[in-house]
Design a protein around this nucleic acid. Structure first.
Lengths: 197, 197
DNA sequence: GTCTATATACCGATAGAC
DNA sequence: GTCTATCGGTATATAGAC
């Protein structure tokens, strides 16, 4: 009788579990993963540390639950580009797809970039494949037999995409549409690509 | 008789102090500041934790000593743009100046971006002014009375500059010259600026 | 599901001998 | 300048009552 509607824990039960997640995202983002104790998370929710362990088996599992959608986004894009051609329109389409996922999961994403090392270490234990995804994406973006300059441009373009996660701080109130169109244009510009669309 | 050549501790004494710094940069970069214990740093150097405290009064002071050149770089650039005009050539000159500092202090800089929260917290206690420097620079880059799009472009351009710190991973062996010219070109492209030089 | 209480371990930092 | 030994504090995680 744990849950009256199995698989619908978002609606039925699980309110506490969601509250823990939200409080953890906020605290991990502002203070960092290692610097945030589970006591602080529990206090923010209004429960004790021991109750928190009922919902998440460990601090690492809590972190992994938070970054899961971000991991899915990069996994999806990396799988997408596998064996794909490298014309301007395709590159633009992949970049837009990647950027949209970034913007959608902005809260967890910005937590990742603010505490890269902690997330990196966490991923290396559970999802070792994702750590190479950035390189895979950069390699594809740079194109076949790319020069040093082309590779630097590819890395810079990915950096432009990732800046969607931190732009809120510099441009409060910017709409998702402006963010997407502007950064997509900037990223293609960095790549020296001038697509037809 | 602490030092035979006062002021020349780089040459005369201070070998241990420098070894501590180098080991700390490496460990802080790969594991994160909070996740790295002073015991690990001491072990890497081949001394004990207590000896480490002879050279640095606290863990925070060790971190601050490492990031000092990075702080100086951004301070210098921010002071430079104060009251400066906003024509294309000036923007390009400022970006180049900022980028060169980034490349020069790449090791400490990449440590900063990999562990943003820890560095942010450390700076807020000692150098609270530097935390606003990013915004000041972005505001100036965006130009007077900037639109949302212009502000997003400014933030993205800074992100391109900062990518110099992590490019090594994607483009091993790239020269400083290629890195500088490519990223400078990419950043100005993001800003929609087409300077004469 | 939530609580109190606790086990266990490591951290940063200090004291004092050499 | 480096060491051994230790203090005080906090962390993750667990046991068991309710």
């Amino acid at each position: 009788m744990a849950q009256p509607y199995p698989g619908h824990d978002i609606i039925a039960g699980g309110g506490t579990k969601m509250a823990i997640r939200d409080a953890a995202v906020k605290l991990f983002t502002s203070k960092g993963f290692e610097q945030t104790s589970l006591r602080e998370v529990a206090d923010a929710v209004g429960i004790t540390k021991a109750s928190l362990y009922y919902h998440y088996p460990s601090k690492l599992d809590l972190l992994l639950a938070i970054i899961e959608p971000v991991v899915e986004n990069i996994r999806r894009v990396v799988a997408e580009v596998d064996g794909l051609g490298h014309d301007a329109d395709t590159v633009r389409r992949v970049l837009r797809d990647y950027l949209r996922g970034m913007i959608r999961h902005r809260d967890a994403g910005s937590m990742c970039v603010r505490d890269t090392v902690a997330i990196y270490n966490a991923l290396s234990e559970r999802y070792p494949d994702v750590l190479e995804s950035g390189k895979v994406l950069a390699d594809w973006l740079a194109g076949p037999d790319a020069s040093h300059e082309a590779r630097v441009r590819a890395a810079a373009a990915l950096s432009v995409i990732t800046s969607a996660l931190t732009t809120d701080e510099y441009v409060p109130g910017v709409s998702d549409e402006v963010l997407e169109s502007t950064l997509l244009d900037a990223a293609t510009c960095v790549l020296n690509i001038h697509a037809t669309a």
